[in-house]
Protein backbone atom coordinates (compact mmCIF):
# COMPACT_ATOMS: atom_id res chain seq x y z
CA UNK A 1 0.00 0.00 0.00
CA UNK A 2 1.01 3.62 -0.38
CA UNK A 3 0.53 6.69 1.84
CA UNK A 4 0.14 10.08 0.20
CA UNK A 5 1.41 12.96 2.34
CA UNK A 6 0.05 16.39 1.44
CA UNK A 7 2.58 19.24 1.37
CA UNK A 8 1.18 22.76 1.68
CA UNK A 9 3.32 25.90 1.62
CA UNK A 10 4.23 26.12 5.31
CA UNK A 11 3.97 22.40 6.11
CA UNK A 12 6.97 21.39 8.19
CA UNK A 13 6.32 17.83 9.38
CA UNK A 14 5.66 16.45 5.91
CA UNK A 15 9.08 14.83 5.59
CA UNK A 16 8.91 13.26 9.07
CA UNK A 17 5.48 11.87 8.16
CA UNK A 18 6.90 10.58 4.87
CA UNK A 19 9.83 8.90 6.64
CA UNK A 20 7.53 7.42 9.32
CA UNK A 21 5.14 6.06 6.69
CA UNK A 22 8.08 4.56 4.77
CA UNK A 23 8.95 2.51 7.84
CA UNK A 24 5.77 0.51 7.28
CA UNK A 25 5.15 0.72 3.51
CA UNK A 26 5.46 2.94 0.43
CA UNK A 27 4.81 6.68 0.67
CA UNK A 28 4.86 9.71 -1.60
CA UNK A 29 4.48 13.48 -1.22
CA UNK A 30 1.43 15.20 -2.75
CA UNK A 31 1.63 18.90 -3.69
CA UNK A 32 -1.15 21.23 -2.54
CA UNK A 33 -2.00 22.05 -6.15
CA UNK A 34 -2.32 18.42 -7.21
CA UNK A 35 -5.84 17.48 -8.20
CA UNK A 36 -5.41 13.76 -7.69
CA UNK A 37 -3.89 11.62 -4.96
CA UNK A 38 -1.49 9.66 -7.25
CA UNK A 39 -3.06 6.36 -6.29
CA UNK A 40 -2.52 6.74 -2.54
CA UNK A 41 -4.36 4.18 -0.38
CA UNK A 42 -4.34 6.49 2.64
CA UNK A 43 -3.72 10.21 3.00
CA UNK A 44 -1.85 12.15 5.70
CA UNK A 45 -2.34 15.88 6.26
CA UNK A 46 0.85 16.71 8.19
CA UNK A 47 1.76 19.27 10.82
CA UNK A 48 3.11 22.74 10.23
CA UNK A 49 1.75 26.17 9.42
CA UNK A 50 -0.13 25.76 6.15
CA UNK A 51 -0.38 29.05 4.25
CA UNK A 52 1.09 30.76 7.32
CA UNK A 53 -1.99 29.75 9.34
CA UNK A 54 -3.35 33.22 8.57
CA UNK A 55 -6.87 34.09 9.73
CA UNK A 56 -7.25 30.80 11.67
CA UNK A 57 -5.09 27.67 11.73
CA UNK A 58 -6.03 25.58 8.71
CA UNK A 59 -8.62 28.05 7.40
CA UNK A 60 -6.88 28.76 4.08
CA UNK A 61 -5.45 25.29 3.45
CA UNK A 62 -8.87 23.76 3.11
CA UNK A 63 -9.35 25.63 -0.18
CA UNK A 64 -6.25 24.06 -1.76
CA UNK A 65 -7.03 22.07 -4.93
CA UNK A 66 -5.72 18.86 -3.33
CA UNK A 67 -8.32 19.17 -0.56
CA UNK A 68 -11.15 18.58 -3.06
CA UNK A 69 -9.50 15.27 -3.91
CA UNK A 70 -9.02 14.48 -0.21
CA UNK A 71 -12.70 15.24 0.53
CA UNK A 72 -13.82 12.99 -2.33
CA UNK A 73 -11.43 10.24 -1.18
CA UNK A 74 -12.82 10.53 2.35
CA UNK A 75 -16.43 10.40 1.20
CA UNK A 76 -15.60 7.18 -0.67
CA UNK A 77 -14.36 5.70 2.62
CA UNK A 78 -10.62 6.30 2.15
CA UNK A 79 -8.51 6.66 5.30
CA UNK A 80 -7.35 10.20 6.10
CA UNK A 81 -5.06 11.04 9.01
CA UNK A 82 -4.59 14.65 10.09
CA UNK A 83 -1.74 15.43 12.47
CA UNK A 84 -1.65 18.72 14.43
CA UNK A 85 -2.07 21.38 11.70
CA UNK A 86 -3.59 18.58 9.61
CA UNK A 87 -6.17 18.06 12.36
CA UNK A 88 -6.94 21.79 12.26
CA UNK A 89 -7.27 21.68 8.46
CA UNK A 90 -9.68 18.71 8.61
CA UNK A 91 -11.85 20.47 11.22
CA UNK A 92 -11.93 23.68 9.16
CA UNK A 93 -12.81 21.61 6.08
CA UNK A 94 -15.73 20.02 7.92
CA UNK A 95 -14.28 16.53 7.47
CA UNK A 96 -14.00 16.28 11.27
CA UNK A 97 -16.31 17.73 13.92
CA UNK A 98 -15.22 20.51 16.26
CA UNK A 99 -12.50 23.13 16.24
CA UNK A 100 -9.06 23.78 17.76
CA UNK A 101 -8.68 26.85 19.98
CA UNK A 102 -5.60 28.52 21.49
CA UNK A 103 -4.07 26.63 24.45
CA UNK A 104 -5.47 27.91 27.74
CA UNK A 105 -1.89 28.70 28.78
CA UNK A 106 -1.49 30.88 25.65
CA UNK A 107 1.91 29.21 25.37
CA UNK A 108 3.53 26.96 22.82
CA UNK A 109 3.83 23.54 24.45
CA UNK A 110 6.41 21.02 23.31
CA UNK A 111 6.70 17.88 25.37
CA UNK A 112 6.21 14.15 25.48
CA UNK A 113 2.69 13.25 26.67
CA UNK A 114 1.06 10.02 27.80
CA UNK A 115 -2.07 9.14 25.87
CA UNK A 116 -4.83 6.64 26.56
CA UNK A 117 -6.47 4.75 23.76
CA UNK A 118 -10.20 5.48 23.90
CA UNK A 119 -11.18 3.11 21.07
CA UNK A 120 -8.89 0.25 20.03
CA UNK A 121 -11.32 -1.02 17.41
CA UNK A 122 -10.71 1.39 14.53
CA UNK A 123 -8.61 1.37 11.33
CA UNK A 124 -6.21 3.83 12.98
CA UNK A 125 -5.74 2.16 16.36
CA UNK A 126 -6.15 -1.60 15.92
CA UNK A 127 -2.53 -2.45 16.76
CA UNK A 128 -1.93 0.43 19.20
CA UNK A 129 -1.08 -0.29 22.86
CA UNK A 130 -3.53 0.86 25.58
CA UNK A 131 -1.26 3.78 26.45
CA UNK A 132 1.11 5.63 24.15
CA UNK A 133 3.94 8.09 24.67
CA UNK A 134 3.98 10.66 21.85
CA UNK A 135 5.16 14.30 21.71
CA UNK A 136 2.89 17.33 21.29
CA UNK A 137 4.10 20.70 19.96
CA UNK A 138 1.48 23.35 19.34
CA UNK A 139 -0.09 26.63 20.42
CA UNK A 140 -3.60 25.98 19.12
CA UNK A 141 -4.56 22.54 20.34
CA UNK A 142 -7.52 23.02 22.67
CA UNK A 143 -10.18 20.79 21.15
CA UNK A 144 -13.77 21.96 21.40
CA UNK A 145 -16.98 20.50 20.10
CA UNK A 146 -20.51 21.47 21.16
CA UNK A 147 -21.72 17.99 20.13
CA UNK A 148 -20.67 14.49 21.27
CA UNK A 149 -17.76 13.14 19.22
CA UNK A 150 -16.08 9.78 18.62
CA UNK A 151 -12.88 10.03 20.67
CA UNK A 152 -9.94 7.77 19.75
CA UNK A 153 -7.23 9.22 22.02
CA UNK A 154 -7.25 11.09 25.31
CA UNK A 155 -4.46 12.73 27.28
CA UNK A 156 -3.78 10.58 30.36
CA UNK A 157 -4.97 12.09 33.69
CA UNK A 158 -2.85 15.16 34.50
CA UNK A 159 -1.28 15.27 31.02
CA UNK A 160 -3.67 17.61 29.17
CA UNK A 161 -1.27 20.19 27.65
CA UNK A 162 -3.80 22.64 26.20
CA UNK A 163 -7.09 22.65 28.12
CA UNK A 164 -8.77 20.37 25.60
CA UNK A 165 -12.39 19.45 26.38
CA UNK A 166 -12.63 16.04 28.16
CA UNK A 167 -8.86 15.57 27.68
CA UNK A 168 -9.50 14.88 23.99
CA UNK A 169 -6.31 14.36 21.97
CA UNK A 170 -7.78 12.78 18.82
CA UNK A 171 -11.21 12.24 17.24
CA UNK A 172 -12.63 10.55 14.16
CA UNK A 173 -15.62 11.30 12.00
CA UNK A 174 -18.93 9.41 12.25
CA UNK A 175 -17.96 7.04 9.43
CA UNK A 176 -14.71 6.24 11.23
CA UNK A 177 -12.38 6.82 8.27
CA UNK A 178 -11.04 10.31 9.05
CA UNK A 179 -8.87 10.72 12.15
CA UNK A 180 -7.29 13.88 13.53
CA UNK A 181 -4.96 14.22 16.52
CA UNK A 182 -2.79 16.93 18.03
CA UNK A 183 0.13 14.69 19.16
CA UNK A 184 2.72 13.79 16.52
CA UNK A 185 2.97 10.02 15.95
CA UNK A 186 5.51 10.64 13.16
CA UNK A 187 7.95 11.97 15.78
CA UNK A 188 7.70 8.77 17.84
CA UNK A 189 8.92 6.08 15.45
CA UNK A 190 12.52 5.50 16.52
CA UNK A 191 14.03 4.45 19.87
CA UNK A 192 16.55 7.27 19.41
CA UNK A 193 13.83 9.81 20.24
CA UNK A 194 12.45 7.91 23.21
CA UNK A 195 9.37 6.11 21.91
CA UNK A 196 8.20 4.09 18.94
CA UNK A 197 4.51 4.18 19.96
CA UNK A 198 3.63 6.53 17.11
CA UNK A 199 4.57 3.86 14.60
CA UNK A 200 1.60 1.73 15.74
CA UNK A 201 -0.82 4.23 14.15
CA UNK A 202 0.92 3.84 10.79
CA UNK A 203 0.98 0.05 11.28
CA UNK A 204 -2.74 0.03 12.11
CA UNK A 205 -3.54 1.83 8.85
CA UNK A 206 -1.34 -0.53 6.88
CA UNK A 207 -3.02 -3.56 8.48
CA UNK A 208 -6.49 -2.19 7.75
CA UNK A 209 -5.76 -1.29 4.12
CA UNK A 210 -4.01 -4.65 3.65
CA UNK A 211 -7.06 -6.56 4.95
CA UNK A 212 -9.37 -4.56 2.73
CA UNK A 213 -7.21 -5.35 -0.30
CA UNK A 214 -7.55 -9.08 0.47
CA UNK A 215 -11.35 -8.81 0.64
CA UNK A 216 -11.73 -6.99 -2.69
Amino acid sequence: MKFGIVRFPGSCDDVDALEAARRVCDAELLWHQDRDLKGADAVIIPGGFSYGDYLRCGAIARFAPVMDAVAEFASDGGLVLGICNGFQVLCEAGLLPGALLPNTSLRFVFRQVRLELADPDTPFTRVCPATLSIPVKHTTGRYYSPDPVHVLLRYAPGENPNGSQDDIAGVCNEQGNVFGLMPHPEHAVDPLTGSTDGLTIFESIRAHVGDRALIH
Partner: peptide, 8 residues
Protein backbone atom coordinates in the same frame (compact mmCIF):
# COMPACT_ATOMS: atom_id res chain seq x y z
CA UNK B 1 -17.39 30.30 4.43
CA UNK B 2 -14.05 31.86 5.38
CA UNK B 3 -13.85 34.91 7.61
CA UNK B 4 -15.52 33.27 10.61
CA UNK B 5 -15.67 29.78 12.06
CA UNK B 6 -19.35 29.76 13.13
CA UNK B 7 -18.71 26.91 15.56
CA UNK B 8 -16.54 29.05 17.81
Amino acid sequence: RLLVNPLI
